[in-house]
Simulated scan of single mutants.
Amino acid sequence: MGLVQYFRKKHLSFVTLVSWFLLFYIIAALVFWFISLETQNQQMYVYRVSELKRDEPTYYNKVMEAEKARRLKSIQYIGEGSIFLLLILVGAGFVYRATKRQIMVSHQQQNFMMAVTHELKTPIAVTRLNLETMLKRKLEDAQREKLLRNTLQEANRLNELCNNILVSAQLEAGAYRLERQELDISALAQAVADDCITRYPQRTIVTTIPSEIYVDGEQLLLQLLVSNLLENALKYSAKDKPVLLGLAIEGKQVKLTVADEGAGIPDTEKKKIFTKFYRIGSESTRSTKGTGLGLYLCKKIATDHKGSIAVKDNTPQGSIFTVTLQSA
């Protein structure tokens, strides 16, 4: 894998070097032709003036006409050259941005493939080990129940991962049809929180959710949104730190907040974290699980519900994610 990455980087470096060389060559050729044409224009002016007879009554007028023609040609060359140069620079800028974006997307997709492979293999391996243990050994009911509960948790992880990937692809392609309805967001958020409490009994999840707050939305998508935000907070905060889930109504808006006491997010990364496949750091040094789809999905879901999502620093440390939706 390292050898493939090495040759890929070498290939991209070579392509970039060739692109810059061609750009400078084109600009140099444009400057060369401008100087050549301007020199030729000056020579034609000198030739025309030398052909005139000084004793002619119209000598001065013809010299002025030749000078005017020379100036017009110079203006023409400067104008055409400037337009060509501007078009070349604009085109080069677009090519550079497209190439840079493609390289970044390629790198993010590669990180995503590495992450999703790990995310898929881990629950499959745990599930297989649990089932093999139950088949090969005679276990007590308590041990059997513990293994079954663990296997169910891993199956839920796989289900969430598949949902994230599938819904993300459908939303991006415009193939997902939102079936909006008047939805009790209070009950939905509490149900997601209860599920997380069951799956993570060693963690503390504190909820502040008033009853009967309604929004106009899609149940599955909003479940994914709340679940992804809670999962994100649990992943990036210490096990002894609580995660807070709050819901409030302010005028015609419903605000859902998820707060953690983790390491926080640098200001330079706050906008990037909602980009598809983007994760802070590199896949080789990152210790937390994830595919880079969770927060991207949250932003996409919030936007499709005519809402918004934002992140700010928590006090004394950590992050607070706030989703704003329209109340029903």
Rank of each mutant, 00 (worst) to 15 (best):
D304C: 09
V167Q: 02
S168L: 00
R149L: 10
Q102K: 15
I165F: 14
K100D: 09
T208P: 03
V95G: 03
G93A: 02
E67T: 14
L85K: 00
D304F: 08
K289P: 04
T207N: 02
K272Y: 05
A92K: 06
A233I: 05
P201L: 01
S211R: 12
S227T: 01
R97G: 01
D216Q: 12
D141I: 14
S168F: 08
V215Q: 06
R203F: 03
L171F: 00
N150C: 08
V192C: 03
F84C: 12
N163A: 12
Y214G: 01
T303H: 11
E65Q: 12
A29E: 14
V49F: 05
R54G: 00
T117L: 06
L22I: 07
T207F: 04
I165Y: 11
K239E: 13
L129K: 12
M64L: 10
Q170W: 09
Q40S: 09
G174Q: 00
S82W: 06
Q5H: 08
S82H: 04
M1H: 11
T39M: 11
L12E: 15
E179R: 06
L37A: 08
I320G: 04
A175R: 14
G2T: 05
L188W: 09
I205K: 02
F277V: 01
G292N: 02
V323W: 14
Y59A: 02
R199K: 13
F274G: 02
P266D: 14
P201W: 07
I320A: 07
L30Q: 14
I83L: 14
L129W: 02
E261C: 00
L30I: 10
K241A: 13
K138A: 01
R8A: 03
